[in-house]
């Protein structure tokens, strides 16, 4: 493993704070040489993940804390989102029926579409940690 940078960001669980967190992540991704396709994917995935934490994990409670970590190395960008709210059960998730337009349910689907790896750690005593990974070059699965 070569060099890496790591930065941390703590935010209040408010929907109107998501834009600032997006800027924090995209500025670093762009500075680290990610192309615009990658930067916009990271931005959207982060926005969806944070909205889920605030609306579902914290059920709209605006006085809670979300801790973000952004690590960038030669190969990939790794974003972790730690919250202390209700856990999301990944097993309960089913992708939306794209042939039938829906008024909701696209958030988690988009995260999986945009990121190369999505890892839910629900083993923590309180809350959970979501890890999102985006590689610099598309992965040949």
């Amino acid at each position: 493993m070569g060099q890496f940078t790591e930065d941390r960001y703590v935010m209040q669980s408010r929907l109107d704070r998501i834009a600032e967190a997006r800027r924090w992540a995209t500025q670093q991704a762009r500075a680290a040489g990610f192309d615009e396709d990658g930067v916009s994917a990271i931005e959207l995935a982060l926005a969806e993940a944070l909205a889920n934490v605030i609306e579902h994990g914290y059920q709209g409670d605006e006085n809670q804390e979300i801790r973000l970590t952004l690590r960038i190395d030669d190969e990939k960008l790794t974003l972790t989102i730690r919250d202390f709210g209700q856990k999301f059960d990944p097993q309960s998730y089913s992708p939306p029926d794209l042939s039938n337009p829906s008024e909701g349910g696209y958030g988690v689907f988009l995260i999986h579409q945009l990121m190369d790896e999505v890892i839910y750690d629900t083993s923590l005593p309180q809350g959970m940690k979501l890890t999102l990974v985006r590689y610099r070059t598309p992965r040949g699965d």
Binding site: A47, E48, A51, P101, S102, E103, Y106, G107
Partner: peptide, 16 residues
């Protein structure tokens, strides 16, 4: 320049 799934949901709701 930026829209997330909340924006999509709002447009789908109007459409329906």
């Amino acid at each position: 320049a930026f829209m997330d799934s909340s924006g999509l949901a709002t447009l789908v709701q109007l459409f329906k």
